Amino acid sequence: DWREIAKLAEEALKKQQPVTVNGQTFNDPNEIKKLLETAQKAI
């Protein structure tokens, strides 16, 4: 669910920690931002 992904990505950016989505881990803040943008577009 994109809403859940957006929430996870936002928290990861705030806490500056990696986030795992669908078994894929994102460590890079730039990648997390991209993930968040993608999720927000999909909602």
Rank of each mutant, 00 (worst) to 15 (best):
N22L: 14
I32N: 00
T20K: 09
V19Y: 05
L13E: 02
E37R: 06
A42M: 15
Q17C: 07
V21A: 05
P18G: 13
E37G: 03
F26D: 00
E31K: 06
W2T: 02
F26Y: 13
I43G: 06
V19M: 15
N30S: 13
K14D: 06
E11K: 06
K15A: 07
Q40T: 09
I32E: 01
Q24S: 06
P18C: 05
E10C: 11
T38R: 13
W2P: 04
K14E: 11
N30T: 12
G23S: 05
L13M: 07
P29V: 13
K41L: 15
T20S: 11
R3I: 14
A39C: 03
A9W: 04
N22P: 01
Q40S: 07
L36S: 01
K15Y: 14
L8W: 09
L8V: 09
L36N: 02
K41I: 13
K41H: 12
I32K: 01
L8E: 05
G23A: 03
L35Y: 02
E31W: 09
A42T: 05
E11I: 08
D1M: 14
Q16M: 12
L13S: 02
I43A: 06
K33S: 07
D1K: 11
L35C: 03
P29D: 05
Q16T: 06
Q24T: 11
N27L: 12
V21T: 03
K15R: 11
L36G: 01
Q16K: 13
A9R: 01
K7V: 11
K41F: 07
K41V: 11
R3D: 11
K33Q: 14
I5Q: 02
Q24L: 12
E31M: 10
K7A: 06
P29A: 11
F26P: 00
D28G: 10
P29Q: 08
E37L: 12
N27Q: 09
I5G: 01
E37H: 08
I32M: 02
L13C: 04
V19D: 02
I43V: 11
T38K: 10
I32Q: 02
L35I: 09
K34V: 12
E31D: 12
E10G: 07
E10V: 10
E31G: 05
T38H: 10
A39R: 00
I32A: 01
T20Q: 08
E4W: 08
E10N: 09
D28Y: 15
E31L: 08
K14G: 07
A6I: 15
E4Y: 11
L36P: 00
K33C: 03
K41P: 02
E4Q: 11
K15F: 12
Q17M: 13
I5C: 03
I32R: 00
K34Y: 10
F26K: 02
D1F: 15
G23C: 07
P29S: 09
T25A: 05
R3P: 13
Q40K: 14
Q16E: 12
T25V: 13
L13A: 02
N22R: 08
T38S: 12
T25W: 10
D28K: 09
Q40P: 02
P18Y: 06
K15G: 09
K15L: 11
N30V: 13
N22Y: 07
I43H: 05
T20H: 12
L35T: 00
L36E: 02
I32T: 01
E37C: 07
R3K: 15
V21F: 10
A39L: 06
V21W: 10
Q40W: 14
Q17V: 11
G23Q: 04
E11P: 00
A39E: 01
A39W: 03
A6R: 08
E37A: 08
V21S: 03
N30L: 14
D1G: 11
Q17N: 06
I5T: 05
E11H: 08
G23R: 03
Q24M: 14
E31F: 10
F26Q: 02
I32D: 00
A12Y: 02
P29I: 14
V19T: 03
V19Q: 01
K34F: 10
P18F: 08
K7H: 10
F26C: 04
A6F: 12
E4C: 14
L36M: 07
V21L: 09
P18A: 13
L8K: 11
E37M: 09
E11Q: 10
W2F: 06
T20L: 07
V19N: 00
L13I: 11
K41W: 06
W2K: 02
N27M: 14
V19R: 00
N22E: 05
P29L: 13
V21C: 04
Q24K: 14
K15V: 08
D28A: 05
L36Y: 05
T20C: 10
I5K: 00
V19A: 03
R3C: 13
Q16C: 09
D1V: 09
Q24H: 10
I5R: 00
E11A: 07
A12M: 03
E31S: 10
G23L: 03
K15I: 07
F26L: 11
D1E: 11
K7D: 07
A42W: 15
G23I: 01
A12T: 00
E31R: 04
A42R: 05
N27A: 04
A39M: 03
A6K: 09
E31H: 07
L8D: 04
K33F: 10
L35H: 00
V21M: 07
E37T: 07
K14R: 12
Q17S: 12
A39H: 02
K7C: 10
V21G: 01
N30A: 14
T38A: 06
A6E: 09
K34M: 05
D1C: 09
A9P: 00
F26H: 05
A12G: 12
K15D: 09
T38D: 12
Q40L: 15
A6D: 01
T38E: 15
D28R: 04
N27R: 13
F26M: 07
I43Q: 06
E31T: 06
Q17H: 12
P29E: 10
K33W: 12
A9Y: 07
G23E: 03
L13K: 01
L8S: 06
Q16S: 10
K14S: 10
D28C: 06
I43K: 01
R3S: 14
K34S: 12
E11C: 07
E11M: 09
V21D: 01
E37F: 05
L8P: 00
A42E: 15
R3L: 13
L13H: 03
F26N: 01
K15T: 14
W2L: 05
D1I: 11
K33N: 05
D28T: 14
L35R: 00
L36A: 02
N30F: 12
N30H: 14
K41N: 14
N27S: 14
E4A: 09
E37P: 00
K15Q: 07
P29H: 10
T20D: 04
N22Q: 07
E10F: 10
T25Y: 13
D1H: 11
Q17L: 10
I43M: 12
D28N: 13
K33I: 13
K34H: 10
L13G: 02
K7W: 13
A6W: 11
F26I: 12
K14F: 11
D28V: 04
I32G: 00
P18L: 04
E37Y: 06
A39D: 02
N22K: 06
D1Y: 15
Q24V: 15
Q40Y: 15
Q24D: 05
K7Y: 12
D28H: 11
K34R: 08
N30I: 12
V21E: 00
T20F: 08
L36T: 01
T20V: 10
Q40R: 11
N30M: 11
E11T: 07
W2R: 00
G23P: 00
T20M: 08
P18H: 10
A9F: 08
Q16F: 10
L36D: 01
K7Q: 11
V21I: 15
P18K: 06
K14N: 13
A39G: 02
A39I: 08
A39F: 03
Q40H: 12
T20E: 07
D1W: 14
T38M: 15
R3T: 14
E10S: 10
A9N: 00
V19I: 15
E31Q: 08
L8H: 05
L8N: 08
V21Y: 10
A9Q: 01
Q24F: 15
Q16R: 14
P18D: 05
G23N: 05
A9M: 10
L35S: 00
L13T: 02
E4V: 11
E10R: 08
V21P: 02
K33A: 14
K14A: 13
Q40E: 11
I43T: 05
A12R: 00
V21K: 01
D28M: 05
K33H: 09
F26T: 05
W2E: 02
T20G: 02
K15E: 09
K14I: 14
Q24W: 10
F26G: 00
D28S: 07
N30K: 13
E37I: 10
T25D: 05
A12H: 01
P18V: 05
V21Q: 01
T25K: 10
E10W: 09
L35A: 02
K14W: 09
W2H: 03
I5F: 04
I5W: 04
K34W: 09
I5V: 08
A6V: 14
E4R: 07
K34Q: 11
L13P: 01
A12V: 02
K34N: 12
R3H: 15
K15H: 15
N27I: 12
K33Y: 09
N27Y: 15
I43Y: 07
